[in-house]
Design a protein around this nucleic acid. Structure first.
Lengths: 272, 272
DNA sequence: GAGTGGTCTAGACCACTGA
DNA sequence: CAGTGGTCTAGACCACTCG
């Protein structure tokens, strides 16, 4: 364990004898320019752990080191590590399991399936779901899409069109645009061959787990295209869900426009 | 301060000398049957504080006692009170203000306006909003509405229909059904006279702050009624938002069905 | 039984607010 | 300045998981 101390996330925290038992000031991390970071120790630790996730030191589904180990590694108390992990668990970046350890959140588990797809059937039955890829090609970013993904117009994108069916009924038509640099090598074959949600593919094959997303929802009339694919009447009301998905450090990497048929499903949301 | 110790929330925590410095077991509270509560101390404290909110000991917008005072009152450490308050702050029941105190969340402040109304304008401009009451009467609950509000069919309800306009453009048509017992004495005059969001009225006049809500969103076609009121074409696509709102202890007290025109607005949501 | 996260305490000091 | 929440530490013990 201690042998791991100075590899990868080798950071230690510097202290200044000025008040606190241990007054946190800056971090001596893998990169410099950290000296400008003025924030509580536990947020600095949170940044370090996030950096480990970004760097792939701990992959989705794997356990991170125990609180005690991390405390030794970063030179802080276990309570401070705990507070950093608490914050990350609240953001669904990490998952705590009493008696076992703390794990990196993953999109490849049954419980995680409905974290981003909030469509539920009217009657609370179990239903099968199936994804069919209609299209997957490389294109150049329009100015609008580039803006959402913080790219430049003309940059490389991967464009995917797919249909989600529940119990055999086509219900969701998704148009997806991905940052071409991050998802280099993504082909129709690889997408079609993959079992499970796309976000599982993104995280396991491209080391890019989606951690957060923002959606803009509207009611729109079905276009001829959408009406045909979703087997609804022309101009039938559909839910339009525009989503920008982010990976670690809130970097946007996916833009998605979904059209949901809400005849026998609804979009569920909780207001707190 | 100490004079307040045995009024209202007079609870103290009983301990058993079995392990912990102080092992939490049960609470001797205002009511009995608490002995069956097996949960960590801080959750028991959370329950006690929630009970204080329910009982009106601290009203929305007011400060609750300091962490130290609550710790003395409940006979636990400040850290335990802190953890209870942290949990409640995460649920937006309380709001911490460093240097000032901890306050009961309220719907009567500028920042709280958009906690439950998630409609935003396409261009991020400031807009005026105006609520017009079309109808407010007492009715008997249908079986369906009764189920949502955990009432019996035939129980008394208050039914309100109102239109929300932004910059003078009618955008939201709400049908609202309220538990008639809780909102006894709610009349069209009182509703129309009130300035600000309805949830402000509910909390200040009926001691019923909404703390949480669940929504089911669909795309629907405008009915003749809705089309007329919202000035859209017949069968134009509208967002249908069905909301069940809860007060303390997750008690449902309001059912609302909103029809949103999403021509120049969208429903914003964040996925974590 | 060893290892992990979960709870609880006690005490110190910091950062912010307002009289 | 006193009072409040915010951070940090150290140490103890509990509850859970798994070999």
């Amino acid at each position: 364990m201690m042998a791991k101390l100075n590899e990868g996330l080798s950071s230690q925290v510097e202290r200044v004898a000025s008040g606190y038992g241990r007054r946190a000031t800056t971090i001596r991390g893998a990169t410099s320019a950290d000296a400008a970071t003025f924030s509580p120790l536990y947020l600095q630790i949170k940044t370090l752990i996030t950096r480990g996730l970004q760097g792939g030191e701990w992959k989705p589904g794997e356990a991170i080191p125990s609180e005690g180990d991390l405390a030794k590694r970063f030179g802080v108390s276990q309570g401070t590590v705990r507070k950093a992990i608490d914050a990350m668990a609240a953001e669904n970046l990490l998952i705590r399991r009493q008696g076992k350890g703390t794990y990196v959140a993953t999109h490849q588990e049954a419980r995680a399936q409905f974290r981003f797809l909030r469509l539920a059937p009217d009657d609370a039955r179990d239903e099968t779901s199936e994804s069919r890829i209609l299209e997957c090609r490389r294109i150049r970013a329009s100015a609008e899409i580039a803006r959402f993904l913080r790219l430049k117009a003309g940059d490389s994108l991967v464009a995917i069109r797919r249909v989600l069916s529940f119990d055999g009924v086509p219900t969701v038509l998704d148009d997806i645009w991905l940052d071409g640099t991050v998802f280099k090598g993504l082909t129709a074959e690889r997408v079609s061959a993959y079992q499970g949600p796309l976000y599982g593919l993104f995280e396991s094959e491209f080391a890019t787990p989606m951690t957060r997303a923002e959606e803009r929802i509207r009611a729109v009339a079905a276009t001829p295209d959408a009406a045909r694919i979703l087997a609804v009447a022309l101009h039938a009301p559909l839910l339009s869900v525009e989503r920008v998905s982010m990976t670690y450090a809130d970097r946007p990497v996916e833009l998605r426009r979904g059209l949901y048929s809400t005849h026998s499903h609804f979009y569920r949301n909780t207001l707190g």
